[in-house]
Design a protein around this nucleic acid. Structure first.
Length: 536
RNA sequence: GCGUCCAUAGCUCAGCUGGAUAGAGCAAUGCCCUUCUAAGGCAUAGGCCAAAGGUUCGAAUCCUUUUGGGCGUACCA
């Protein structure tokens, strides 16, 4: 819709025209301040220019009116245009708001270490990534969702140790000495049980078998992680194991040539020359690769797979890591501009005023699965998707648990359910409704139709700007328009009942499509919990 | 110290590539169910958009500085 108008104006004026949505619908559907920018070069007042431009728009299929107000050019879309578009949308529901971008994108997100269940901070990145994924798919991108599994390195050794400690303390009843860092949590008990079953109880005390234990255990942890993600409707296309990449190490080293050098018995990458603060160690004196080494092979492998664009979603605490990875990509001979790193900021959770410090190594984590259990996947997804991902978010768990009108997901679901209820109460059949015309709608109805048809622009804008919160913001506003319309205008029995129902079908389509892009299923009915009143 | 992100209503947050009177939810106050689910609607109140400069016809938005925060600044991930 906007593209159409925008293209029309571009053709007419021979330049890109800024198109905006006026705050007040009485100004029209779209507006442009173009007269202000033309004022200088034409040496005329914006008002005069706007007047001239407005009067040049006669006999137009798209606009019913073009007016100049205080230098702005305000456009009102014609009934014909809106009506045809609305009808098209209902006839092509699955294609509504879809596009064919046809670009191959690799989206890597979550990638939490396979050493424990996901916590609330991971959930934010997961929701952000999955929402982007869904938006991109809808826009026709050929996008792959990938999870990078860090199944090599210190954290894996620590997993083996942690299982042994847990087992020795709880099963063998030993008085164990805990080191400074080790994992703890309920999931370890089931791993201990599984390990005993698989390897026999002696594995708990054999330090030489820690690695073996860990490599077995990480698969169990990955099962927990993918199950938790599945509960949030998040699914990955591919998993890449860090451990599988090191066979390639020699070749990748060679590929980077002089940018890798040896000093003090260690291997370094000359990342400082590419904007990093300093050069970094990639292989230690004892031959063990650092974390960065894994990322170098991994990114080489990514680029060799040949995508047009790469998106990584990282926790914001890794932001300092971006320059060195980009440097490595450059050294490998690729364009680091193709690699886009998006950050998912910290989530701080309060509970009765107590701040929770989120650290995976401390025992005191808020498990994502616990929150999903308490408030549900829909509410969690909605709240995370509603906030800009790159700004810190703080919320109180107590507030989060409320399941009333303060929860916007209920508000939107209620709007969708309302439409469904009215449809089922109407005597008109779906065919009759679809056959009726949008023409002759009053201003409020016209405005609602326009709002509902705005979804395609919102989706494209949300993805292009990587600001997924634009979608929930839009859905909230559309639901509000629907609720208000519903209150003001009785549908059943209205002389325009069929066409109003058709209008509602468009609203429902946008709500449903929008929700599905957030991984939320639109509800047709809201069941209100019975309130029992005590008899006196 | 350096890098980076941020600062908008009492609270949690929106505010599109600069544009018409600064927005929502919660909390507060007052209304609206003989009417399609009141999980709803309406109204009131609440703001020197952290501060100061600058660019512009026009700034919450862009630039600089200051103040106050988060995060990073590892051969940890």
């Amino acid at each position: 819709m906007k593209q159409r108008v925008s293209a029309l104006l571009r053709e007419k004026f021979g330049r890109e025209v800024i198109l905006e949505k006026p705050k007040d619908r009485s100004f029209g559907h779209f507006a442009t301040p173009i007269a202000f920018s033309l004022a200088k070069e034409l040496r005329k007042s914006p008002m005069a220019i706007a007047e001239e431009l407005a009067s040049s728009f006669e006999n137009n299929d798209v606009f019913s009116s073009v007016e100049s107000v205080k230098g702005y050019l305000n456009f009102r879309l014609s009934e014909n245009f809106l009506s045809e578009y609305g009808t098209w949308a209902l006839e092509n529901q699955t294609d509504f708001a879809k596009q064919e971008k046809n670009e191959k994108i690799l989206l890597e997100f979550v990638s939490a270490n396979p050493t424990g269940p996901l916590h609330i901070g991971h959930a934010r990145g997961a929701v952000y990534g999955d929402t982007l994924l869904r938006l991109a798919r809808h826009l026709g991108y050929d996008i792959t969702a990938e999870y990078y599994v860090n199944d090599a390195g210190n954290q894996i050794d620590l997993l083996g140790l942690s299982i042994q400690l847990e087992g020795r303390a709880t099963v063998l009843g030993e008085d164990v000495q805990y080191p400074e860092s080790y994992y703890r949590g309920e999931y370890l008990t089931s791993l201990v049980d599984g390990a005993i079953e698989k390897f026999g109880i002696e594995i708990l005390s054999d330090e030489s078998r820690q690695k073996e234990l860990a490599l077995w255990a990480k698969d169990g942890v990955m099962n927990i992680i993918t199950k938790d993600l599945g509960d949030l409707n998040i699914f990955f296309d591919t998993f890449v194991n860090e451990s599988s990449l090191y066979d390639d190490w020699e070749r990748v080293l060679h590929k980077m040539g002089d940018s890798i050098y040896e000093k003090d018995d260690k291997m370094w990458i000359a990342s400082e020359s590419k904007g990093d603060e300093k050069d970094r160690v990639v292989v230690r004196e004892d031959g063990r690769p650092t974390y960065l080494a894994g990322d170098i092979v991994y990114h080489n492998q990514k680029f060799e797979r040949g995508y047009a664009h790469y998106i990584n979603i990282w926790g914001a605490d890794h932001h300092g890591y971006i320059p060195r990875v980009k440097a490595a990509v450059e050294f490998l001979g690729y364009d680091s501009a193709k690699l886009e790193v998006l950050l998912s900021q910290m989530v701080s959770l309060l509970k009765d005023g107590e701040p929770y410090k989120m650290s995976k190594r401390a025992g005191n984590v808020i498990l994502m699965s616990d929150i999903v259990e308490e408030i549900g996947s829909d509410a969690l997804r909605f709240i995370f998707a509603s906030k800009k991902s790159d700004t810190a978010l703080e919320f109180d768990l107590a507030e989060f648990k409320k399941q009333d009108s303060s929860n916007p997901i209920f508000y939107i679901q209620y709007a969708h359910a309302r439409i469904n209820t009215i449809l089922s109460k109407s005597n008109f059949t779906k065919e009759e409704i679809l056959k009726s015309s949008f023409k002759g709608l009053d201003e409020n109805a016209d405005s609602l139709l326009f709002d509902a048809l705005l979804l395609p622009e919102i989706i494209e804008d949300a993805f292009n700007s990587r600001q997924v919160q634009k979608l929930p913001e839009y859905l909230k506003a559309l639901a509000a328009s629907l609720h208000k319309f519903y209150y003001d205008c009785r549908i059943i029995g209205n002389e325009d009942e069929a066409k109003l129902l058709k209008l509602f079908l468009v609203v429902a389509l946008s709500l449903k499509t929008g929700l599905s892009l957030m991984g939320i299923e639109a509800k047709d009915h809201m069941s209100k919990e019975e309130e029992f009143t005590t008899a006196i």
